[in-house]
């Protein structure tokens, strides 16, 4: 491809320490991580006062759905990495399909989670059912909203890749959006064992 021959990687760019993406997105990521840390801490220390109630309510959760959603987010993250790698080597247009795969996995996550919510509401579970359910619904919904925002970002990146906008000298937007998506994935890696598994 023509674009490849013009973009020779700068020798220093891969050796000197650097953040993948914009500083602003990383500061935003830190703020998000701070909010999730407060949520996780509040859950864990509230549970310490209501161990039996939390354990009983947790057993009724669909752990299979939680595990499936973890697999979907991890796969989406790996696909995003492949799309970024593709753009880096100048095959962003072809490798845009990886981003499409990531978006499909993210949407499947929303469908599985939606199914869980609908089953919970059918069973009469609401925010006021118990302290556990208050945490379960609000924490997972807070994360759910982040997946939706992440998917919007991935869709924009997919479009940019498709149009050949990213290359070895123009990676900032792509890496920034990818970092945000990975953050959403990383938070779920803590959320899943915390709420669905550990008792």
């Amino acid at each position: 491809m023509l674009a490849t021959s013009f973009h020779t990687p700068k020798p220093s760019s891969r050796t000197s320490p650097h953040l993948a993406g914009d500083l602003a997105i990383w500061i935003f990521i830190l703020a998000e991580l701070g909010a999730f840390a407060v949520f996780f801490g509040a859950y864990a220390f509230t549970r310490a006062k209501h161990v039996a109630d939390f354990n009983t309510a947790q057993l009724a959760l669909n752990r299979d759905a939680g595990a499936l959603n973890t697999l979907l987010l991890l796969t989406a993250s790996a696909f995003v990495v492949r799309a970024v790698q593709g753009a880096q080597m100048g095959s962003g247009i072809r490798d845009a399909r990886w981003m499409l795969g990531a978006i499909a996995c993210g949407m499947a996550f929303l469908i599985v989670k939606g199914g869980e919510y609908s089953a919970a509401f059918d069973a009469g579970i609401s925010l006021s059912s118990s302290i556990f359910h208050m945490f379960y619904l609000s924490l997972t919904f807070f994360h759910f909203m982040h997946v939706i925002l992440g998917l919007v970002i991935l869709a924009v990146l997919w479009n940019g890749l498709r149009l050949g906008r990213y290359g070895v000298n123009n990676m900032n937007r792509l890496e920034s959006g990818a970092a945000y998506w990975h953050m959403v994935d990383m938070v779920w890696l803590i959320l899943f064992p915390l709420i669905y598994v550990i008792h």
Binding site: L19, A20, E175, A179, H182, D185, M186, L189
Partner: peptide, 19 residues
């Protein structure tokens, strides 16, 4: 969970190349 998180952070988010 910690190991999984570190893999995503350091490899996927490329923090191993970060300051």
């Amino acid at each position: 969970a910690l190991i999984k998180g570190l893999i995503v952070a350091f490899d996927f988010m490329a923090l191993r190349h970060a300051p």
